[in-house]
């Protein structure tokens, strides 16, 4: 029984302590930067680290701290928009993109990211507009070229996509992303051409040497790796005797 009284007494004392805590002077402040450092850019650094670790909610807090230190700091809006978008808050993301560009309309990265945001939302016209704006500000930007090529490809404009990627691979031959997109576009073109073959030949059966388009792509890939070119030979045709 005494034990219960002791426990009850302890609980009461503890609750009183919690109601009237002594406050530590150095209590952690969510937006406290070390003294002597530019806080806005410091918090953007913190936010970038959290965003890179996919801790977008934490990153948004950091970017908001940066904006508390400097309400006109466009890089903080620009980055917070990306994290808002990653968390699926489209309205907040768009508001932040717009806020960043209202402060500085020359931010190429913001046009690129907003373009990507529009493309993800299925608004390809606005996506192309933003990516083209990015390219008018920085003509050789490899990411903008790649992203615009992707949007062109989604719209079936493979020639425009290839043109952008040709520019990208010429100007940035070491950028791997463009080659991946280029491969995908050639795959799409392959599928499109096989489809056209079937339409023109008037047959639903795949008369390709290695089977379906997917099998054909696989056989080409295998041939490139092994040096076996037989899949190509299957595409050759003998001369038509009626030809002079």
């Amino acid at each position: 029984m005494n034990r219960w009284f002791t426990l009850l007494g302890s609980a009461i004392i503890l609750s009183l302590l919690l109601v009237h805590p002594a406050a530590a002077q150095d209590a952690a402040d969510e937006c406290s930067a070390p003294p002597g450092i530019a806080p806005a850019v410091y918090f953007v650094g913190q936010g970038d680290a959290h965003a890179a670790s996919a801790q977008h909610a934490r990153a948004i807090v950091d970017y908001t701290c940066a904006l508390a230190a400097d309400p006109n700091y466009a890089p903080a809006y620009a980055r917070r928009a990306v994290s808002q978008s990653a968390l699926g808050d489209a309205d907040a993301a768009l508001a932040d993109y717009d806020a960043a560009l209202a402060i500085d309309e020359t931010l190429v990265e913001v046009y690129i990211n907003r373009g990507m945001f529009y493309a993800q939302a299925g608004n390809f016209g606005l996506a192309l507009a933003d990516l083209s704006l990015a390219l008018s500000l920085e003509p050789g930007n490899a990411i903008a070229l790649n992203n615009r090529a992707v949007v062109h490809a989604i719209e079936g404009n493979y020639d425009l996509a290839l043109a952008d990627l040709e520019t990208a691979t010429t100007q940035h031959p070491d950028n791997p992303v463009s080659y991946a997109t280029l491969g995908s576009i050639y795959s799409a073109l392959a599928v499109q051409n096989y489809q056209r073959y079937l339409e023109v030949s008037g047959s639903d059966e795949a008369l390709l040497p290695a089977g379906t388009p997917t099998q054909m792509l696989s056989a080409i890939d295998n041939g490139l790796r092994t040096g076996n070119y037989s899949v190509w030979l299957g595409l050759m045709r003998p001369a038509d005797w009626g030809t002079p």
Partner: peptide, 9 residues
């Protein structure tokens, strides 16, 4: 300042 923030995070 940026890299201090990033590094500390």
């Amino acid at each position: 300042a940026y890299y201090m923030g990033e590094g500390l995070a």
